[in-house]
Amino acid sequence: MGFFLNHFYEIAAMILFGVGFMGLLLHNNLIKKAVGLNIMDTAVYLFLAQRGFITGRVAPIMGDNLEASVEEYINPIPAGLVLTGIVVSVSVTAFSLALIQMLHKKYHTLNLDEILLKAKQEKEKKKALEEREDA
């Protein structure tokens, strides 16, 4: 039990990662996939941010106290990684939402299976039309 309490954040991060990953992989609804993507990325950021934090220390910003030692600060690298990661996941999310919007405009549904089905039908229709033209 102590193990679970001590590693609460890590466990939460891993569970969230799994939830997000499976959401991205298995959901049929494209918006839910985008949400899953964000949960997955955020889980990694939670994990990183938690690992960089050291209880009782502050962010490594040099204030009035110029003689502060390393011992007073938390590890800033995970925070930097999280910031970079957030930028990346924002752009990826924006891109995927734009794509989803295009798909919705074209097929009027968010369900990936339906979209695939419609795309297939469209292709077959086009092919049949071409064949008729050829004949």
Binding site: F17, L24, V92, S96, L99, E122, K123
Partner: peptide
């Protein structure tokens, strides 16, 4: 339509990989 559908599938798999 065909390329957008292909792209979204590509994007999803790629994002799983980079995740």
């Amino acid at each position: 339509g065909e390329t957008i559908v292909a792209t979204i599938r590509y994007l999803i798999m790629s994002l799983l990989g980079s995740g």
